[in-house]
């Protein structure tokens, strides 16, 4: 493996070619917030919390560090005034949808006492960890996204898919919003007995 030199927050960092900025930063002990990232899964780039500023020959750009591969001599800033503002805004937008777990921690970090936007009820914020874990690690594709835009949600595509669920429950602890557990159980409501096993309490 070829090793690459780059600079993250003023620190000289070595990383292997093909790894991402997020991995390089974390290895160097620099924390970048994420909500939709999991090392076992392919980069998704949806939550946009991991945006960092890269500087290539004076041209500055914001990129998602979870997906951007390291480059020789790249200068990366993970915390600037602009980035903090962006993260704060994203957390505030998500806070209107859900308040649990990692979001609370982030809200505290960015000094937010709730959101100026009004949400309906604490709900899923579509990080997709459950869907992608089932597809990529378990190779099962039991759940999927349906709908688009603000109508997007996680669901079982069909009774057939649901009845194929191995009930491993490994997706449940992945959920940062806490919405998946109830959605998961709700998915089994009204399912006929003979359609297969269902998750216990």
């Amino acid at each position: 493996m070829e090793t690459i030199q780059l600079e993250i927050d003023g620190k000289k960092v070595e990383a292997e070619r093909g790894t991402t900025l997020l991995q390089a930063a974390r290895k160097a002990g620099i924390e970048i917030p994420t909500l939709c990232h999991d090392d076992r899964l392919a980069p998704f780039g949806a939550c946009r919390l991991c945006l960092v500023e890269i500087d290539r020959g004076g041209r500055k750009r914001l990129v998602a560090s979870c997906a951007y591969e390291v480059e020789d001599g790249l200068v990366v800033k993970t915390v600037t005034e602009k980035i903090v503002k962006i993260r704060r805004m994203i957390v505030e937008l998500l806070l209107a949808e859900a308040t649990t777990g990692p979001l609370e921690v982030l809200a505290e970090k960015y000094g937010l006492k709730g959101s100026r936007f009004k949400g309906d009820e604490p709900a899923c914020f579509l990080c997709g960890l459950c869907v992608r874990y089932c597809a990529e690690v378990k190779k099962k594709d039991i759940t999927c996204f349906i709908g688009r835009g603000i109508g997007r949600e996680v669901a079982f595509p069909s009774d057939l898919a649901r009845s194929a669920c191995p009930l491993c429950r490994e997706c449940l602890p992945l959920c940062p919003s806490g919405a998946w557990y109830s959605l998961y159980l709700k998915g089994y409501e009204g399912m006929p007995e003979e359609a297969g096993p269902r998750p216990g309490a």
Partner: peptide, 21 residues
């Protein structure tokens, strides 16, 4: 745009929803 956003990333999905509001 809010209707046709795929809903994957936060800024587009939540941003268009709030701007529309």
């Amino acid at each position: 745009s809010a209707d046709e956003s795929c809903g994957k990333c936060t800024p587009c999905r939540e941003g268009s929803k709030r701007m529309l509001e």
